[in-house]
Write a protein that binds this DNA or RNA. Structure first.
Length: 149
DNA sequence: GCCAACGTTGGC
DNA sequence: GCCAACGTTGGC
């Protein structure tokens, strides 16, 4: 079992959207590192910190991986912003997993809080703030769960 | 709001 | 295959 952090713009698709949808294909990821994590490393049941971006950047809740990786359908859609001319059905270029809602924190744990916490100094988020999918250690995950409680 | 850093694309 | 150019993100 592995832990992850997923970033998402709350205006576009925040924790409340996921709560309503219950399950959502994590479409539109166009970064190779993030793609490889989904395609090669994510397993059903892995837990994810759901991180809102923007001004109130913070962990808004918990989600879980709900499928193994499959080709992101938007890469085949010519009308989509995510269309990928290099992709074919035989050789997909971009992959995704389904993400399911687990819980919404009463109050988000702001990234500023995480940054000032010495226990979390090793988080990848601080070294790679732009990476939209990244692994989180079990220790850091549990620590953040406590901060949210 | 500016700008540095990063990831990706495309020209050679 | 390298690297310059570009677009985007996020820190300050």
């Amino acid at each position: 079992m592995q832990y992850w952090l997923l970033k998402s713009e709350p205006e576009t698709f925040g924790i409340v959207h996921l709560e309503k949808a219950k399950k959502e294909p994590w479409t539109g990821v166009r970064n190779f590192v993030a793609r490889n994590y989904m395609r090669d490393k994510m397993r059903v049941g892995d837990l994810c910190l759901f991180c809102h971006t923007g001004k109130l950047k913070g962990i808004a809740g918990i989600a879980k991986v709900a499928s193994r990786a499959y080709p992101d359908p938007s890469q085949f859609d010519k009308k989509s912003d995510y269309y990928e001319p290099r992709a074919s059905y035989d050789k997909p270029y971009w992959w995704l997993v389904d993400i399911a809602f687990v819980k919404k924190f009463k109050k988000p744990v702001l990234v500023g809080e995480l940054k000032s916490d010495p226990a979390l100094s090793n988080m990848i988020l601080f070294r790679a703030p732009r990476l939209s999918i990244q692994p989180v250690s079990e220790k850091d995950f549990q620590h953040i769960m406590k901060l949210a409680a």
